[in-house]
Amino acid sequence: MTNTLIFILAGAFSTATPLLLAAMGELVAEKSGVINLSIEGMMALGAAIAFMIAYQSGSHALGFLGGGLASVALSLIFSTLVLVLNANQVASGLAVGILGLGLSAFLARSFESLTIISLEKLDIPILTALPLIGPVAFHQDVVVYLGLGLAVALASFMSKTRGGLILRVVGEDPHIAHSLGFKVLRTRFLAISFGAAMAGLAGAYASTVLTPLWSDGMIIGRGWIALALVVFGTWRVFRILLGAYMFGLALLADLAVQSLGIRIPSQLLTSAPYVMTIIVLTVVSKDALRIKLNAPISLGENYKPSK
């Protein structure tokens, strides 16, 4: 019983990591005023490329690098559509997302069902030996810790740096940002690229560490969960972090239900993240003032520079 509990709680750190990485990327894109609905496809492409590279080279680091870069390359199409050609953000995101899913299956077709070795879990002296908390929190792979570190770094970037301020101003009101002398399109381009890189890394983690195998369709909706997380966390980094672990636990639902002998349909637990997201979105949107505090006001609207 305790062992099962430890296994599930520790596992949630791993299942949460791709959600956290992708959601932090989407957060930055949305904060700049761009909603990117292609995360699912970007994660899939990142996962495919990372797996192919890691399989051939035996290096996880190279896999992550390749996965991140591949997603950024794919996002150039999205950036061109929404920033240069002023195409609708929703349609552009879906288009690029479908393309990413297709490309991932296409490029990695000869790798179907192959497996590699996952990253090893790191033991930390003293901490890992702690009862309960040791095996749960201090027996994880390096990417889990990097993800946590990145969350801290991102939170302070957003609230404490000039770059974070510019990002937020651009997302709130691109016209004011422009008149203050900030480069709206450049900021949005960087934000989209960062978001894509994170989605690619998230995919890389999914296919080379979490379940180290390639199988077409393996992202199975985790990109949509990441999108939900941003809303669930009301555009705040630490709430997103918390949400990622809750949703990560929900992804282990099947396992938990079976091993703990609870009699609830696993589909109920699997849909919990989506239901909770709808509830949170409803609550925060209801109060116009409250949603203004966090949600970028210009989200989804293109900015056309007037000359």
């Binding site: 949509w224 939900a228 997201t277 709808i278 979105l281 949107s285 209801k286 949603i291």
Partner: peptide
């Protein structure tokens, strides 16, 4: 006032 994009996706 909840975004129909997110709600329908969920």
């Amino acid at each position: 006032n909840a975004s129909e994009i997110i709600v329908t996706l969920m």
